[in-house]
Simulated assay, not measured.
Amino acid sequence: MKLVGPWLSGYTRRVGITLRLLTLPFEHLPYHAYREPERVRVFSPMARVPALQLDDGQVLVDSHAIVDYLDSIVPADQRLMPASGPERVRAMQLVGYACACYDKLARYCDELMLRPEAHRLAHLQAGYREQMESGLRVLEAAHADPWLIGSRISQADIMAVVAFQSASVVIPRTVNSESFPRLAALAQQAMQFTAFSSTLPDLEDLQASGLIGADNGI
């Protein structure tokens, strides 16, 4: 399999973490959708990442579809989403909040960095931040014992950590270990797994993107 997209993309990172936790072999092609759209389009006509090319040549886009497929090809006891019942509902709730947080962060960054300063809409920026921080507070309130769905790591943990770590890079004065101690502890626990530590975006890539402290701590 070939995974297309940089670790800078939280959803690409989600898929990479999943592949590594499930010990599924893959080749990582860190093509950036903005900087290298033509290379991405070879796999994804919309130049959208992540894209996962399967061994038979078919390509899946959208991290939700990709991780669902990956769960379907491993033994049941290795899957990263509960199969049914209250645990599955709870996992879906938390994944939904974490993805929503990441989506709002991405919109916030686009508004802050892609739109010319004279045309930025302050109320949109404030709204995205408020929604994102509200979602993070929901995740913060979830009890991890030791993981969000109990004894085994799940997609809820993966996406919660991705969202928290991404936000802590962009707005570190607001999203940090003091404001969200449980999420920080969850991230620290997850980072003991190579699947998480090996997929952190490179500092050079973060600096080039302008994401580090993008809001100047406001």
Rank of each mutant, 00 (worst) to 15 (best):
G150C: 05
L24R: 11
P181Y: 09
C109S: 08
D55A: 06
M46V: 10
V67S: 03
P37C: 07
H119E: 14
A106H: 09
A33K: 04
A106C: 11
Y69N: 01
L105A: 12
Y128P: 00
M1S: 13
S177I: 00
E87C: 04
H119M: 08
L136D: 06
V59R: 00
V170T: 06
A160W: 00
L8F: 05
G96V: 15
A184H: 06
A195Q: 09
H64G: 10
D110M: 12
R20T: 08
W7V: 07
Q93R: 12
L114W: 08
Q188A: 15
V67K: 02
A144S: 02
A190E: 01
P37M: 11
P45Q: 09
G57T: 10
L8Y: 01
E38H: 15
A91P: 02
H64S: 14
A126V: 12
D202V: 03
M191H: 14
P82L: 11
Y97W: 15
S209I: 01
T23G: 09
F164M: 08
M46H: 12
L22V: 05
Q78G: 10
G57K: 09
A118I: 08
R14K: 15
L70K: 04
P146S: 13
M92W: 03
A122P: 02
F180I: 07
Y31L: 09
E204L: 05
S177K: 11
M1G: 06
R90N: 07
Q58M: 15
T12E: 01
L114G: 01
V40G: 00
R20F: 05
M191Y: 11
M159C: 10
V61E: 07
A33R: 04
T194G: 13
D103G: 04
D110C: 10
G96T: 12
E111W: 10
V138T: 11
S134C: 05
V4M: 07
H28G: 09
Q192D: 13
D215M: 12
P86E: 05
L121N: 13
R41Q: 10
Q192T: 11
R137Y: 08
P82V: 02
T12R: 03
S44V: 04
G5Q: 01
P181G: 08
T199D: 01
S177A: 15
V170R: 08
V74D: 12
A118E: 14
R88K: 12
A126Y: 03
V59E: 02
I17V: 14
V74W: 00
V42N: 01
T199G: 00
C99F: 11
T23D: 15
D110H: 15
R13Y: 07
A106I: 09
L186W: 06
P45A: 01
C109E: 05
V138L: 11
R129W: 12
G210C: 13
L139K: 07
R41D: 12
L114N: 15
E204A: 11
S44E: 03
P86N: 05
L124W: 15
L200P: 06
R35C: 05
V59A: 00
A187P: 09
A33T: 10
P45N: 14
N216E: 15
Q207C: 02
A195S: 14
Q58H: 14
